[in-house]
Design a protein around this nucleic acid. Structure first.
Lengths: 352, 352
DNA sequence: TTGAAAGCGCTAACAT
DNA sequence: ATGTTAGCGCTTTCAA
């Protein structure tokens, strides 16, 4: 026989956690009746139901979900995983990712799900599958594809319930939800062209699918306008401020032959503005700058950022719906959400 | 008899999840042996242990933690709860809170715990106890006290394993971990006084314990310097940018009789700078501004923010240690961590 | 060294 | 309308 250790025996801080059998005894009914009452079953006498419910509430009893889930073979927990760069030991602190997480939290709560939040080395996204394999979560939401489209495809092939925030890539087997990155890149670039700028730099690491797509949009807008694409104006800065800051300063110190910049995040835009000023150039007069994400702070920087607005609030709901759809057995589709350009002072509406 | 529904029968997307009995059958041993092998028990033959472990790994088997926890009466999940303002429907998007959450996530992961993240109405912090009552989490970390010191005290009285990020208040029964708010307020104010400023405004909602303590520090520094405290220079702006922005613009439009501002967050500092500029005043020449938190972006604003640095990275570890200590039965103590002033351009080192 | 069996807290089929 | 009972996947005592 077994006598598992009671949790808090050490400090005696805690009395044994209440369970159904306690409520049953106090109410003078069987455990099944308590279970039924608490689950609002019609099978139990209304008066009894009332009495049991009140007793439970007054004693602060709340059902043991571990046991319930085991019995029911169900689980209402979703793992949300934020990749981080293990090499640079930099944690993702970009406000955009954090906003997305918040938005997912809301969407899950609305639907009665719990959210397990964790980080994973961006080089081993597949380690995230452990949440599912161990039964701790019924599915995964991954924030960003990073450099491992391949791993994500393998995870999908393994039939892992998975949704990724990111862009649509060729040969993609996994379900993704993301903003329209190509459009975002185009809108930003087109606006700068309309301002009369012709030497437009692009800041972002095109190894990342989302950035790669934005770059497509950037190139497309340049071609439309008959402006030559100059690869030397492309700066592969990572999202981490610590690294990007140096890269940008070097670039701005070395070159003055550009009059606008498209950045792949608002934080990068901020860093770019700093670097430009350090190099003695004015924003937006000498160089217009456009960010990406429209983070809450974007309106409050100086100058306020013109930026591509991403639908953060809707994103959480979309991601969660996509995951739950998959669990219902629906085909895992891709979803691209609209984005728009938010005009502010860093690249104003009127030329000059 | 019972036949619980299998999870993914609908789409047929998923095969039955592997369990110990499957491994046992394939390895030609009993379930107990598999259990022992996987837990590295000395009781099982080294060769068998090896074989079972390899089999499990090759099949991507991973133990069902729900069942294990039920059997063992243990749980390695901690709930982290971020309050939000239900009235204004504003979610906390302050980078500082999100950084703290990240730091807690790391600390929990290091110690082998999982993190359940959720939000709660700041008016009903006590609802967070549901995570514990339901057995979903062994304890709670709450980010901020907000206006409900009382509720937190009640939760502690109920013997809920709870740690709160926040300040030390009189009559406090619950365990808190926080930066030294009084010191932070003092350091900021003292620095402004050293710059020769005498009319120093204070921006923050003193109904919140942390802000209240910072205000103590502010008042103390003023008294030290023999400067009168002018209550009309105290502006009770909330942390939500949407609301605070308007309040600050009105204030800066109406008054020019101040030459410095102590803000209770970096976001508030940013908003203050915006409002000052809109009113035609220069930062730091006309008005020096000091923020609070030292969020990652603080160095990259314009001007870069002089701010009170909070020990975010250490905070996660402290919070988690405090919680685990409580679970071990140790006295729930209060912990105040050092802060320091990070000098940047919004209130520079040298006067004038 | 291994297996059989009990039981963690809960739900539901089956009895009454 | 309520009680009895089996069993969800696991660990561990007990027996061999």
């Amino acid at each position: 026989m077994v006598k598992p250790k009671q949790q808090n025996e050490a400090g005696g801080a805690e009395q044994r956690r209440l369970q159904m059998v306690d409520i049953a005894r106090l109410a003078g009914v069987s455990v099944s009746t308590v279970s039924r009452a608490l689950n609002g079953s019609e099978l139990v006498n209304a008066e009894t139901r009332q009495r049991v419910a009140e007793l439970a509430r007054s004693l602060n009893y709340s059902i043991n979900f571990g046991a319930r889930n085991l019995r029911l073979q169900e689980n209402k927990t979703v793992a949300v995983v934020v990749p981080y760069d293990a090499k640079s030991r930099q944690h993702i602190s970009d406000p955009f990712f954090l906003s997305i997480v918040g938005s997912i939290a809301d969407a899950l709560t609305d639907r009665g799900y719990d959210m397990l939040l964790s980080r994973v080395d961006a080089e081993h996204l597949d380690l995230a599958s452990h949440w599912f394999d161990s039964g701790k979560a019924i599915g995964l939401v991954l924030i960003g594809q990073w450099r491992h489209h391949d791993q994500l495809n393998e995870m999908a092939a393994r039939k892992l319930p998975l949704v990724v925030w990111g862009g649509e890539m060729p040969q993609q087997l996994y379900c993704s939800v993301g903003g329209d990155n190509v459009l975002g890149g185009t809108l930003a670039t087109r606006h700068l062209l309309q301002l009369g700028r012709r030497r437009i730099a692009f800041v972002g690491d095109a190894q990342l699918p989302e950035v790669w797509l934005r770059r497509q949009g950037y190139c497309q807008a340049l071609r439309e306008a008959g402006v030559d694409i100059d690869p030397s104006l492309e700066l592969p800065a990572p999202f981490e401020p610590g690294v990007a800051s140096g890269v940008l300063r070097d670039f701005c110190a070395a070159r003055r032959d550009f009059d606008a910049v498209v950045c792949c995040s608002d934080v990068l835009a901020l860093l770019t503005i700093q670097a430009l000023r350090a190099a003695g150039r004015r924003v937006p007069d000498d160089v217009a700058v456009i960010g990406y994400d429209d983070m809450p702070l974007a309106a409050y920087c100086d100058p306020p950022l013109t930026t591509v607005h991403q639908p953060v609030a809707e994103a959480g709901a979309e991601l969660v719906e996509a995951l739950l759809g998959q669990l219902r057995g629906e085909r895992a589709g891709l979803r691209t959400m609209p984005v728009y350009l938010k005009l502010r002072a860093s690249a104003p509406a009127a030329p000059g």
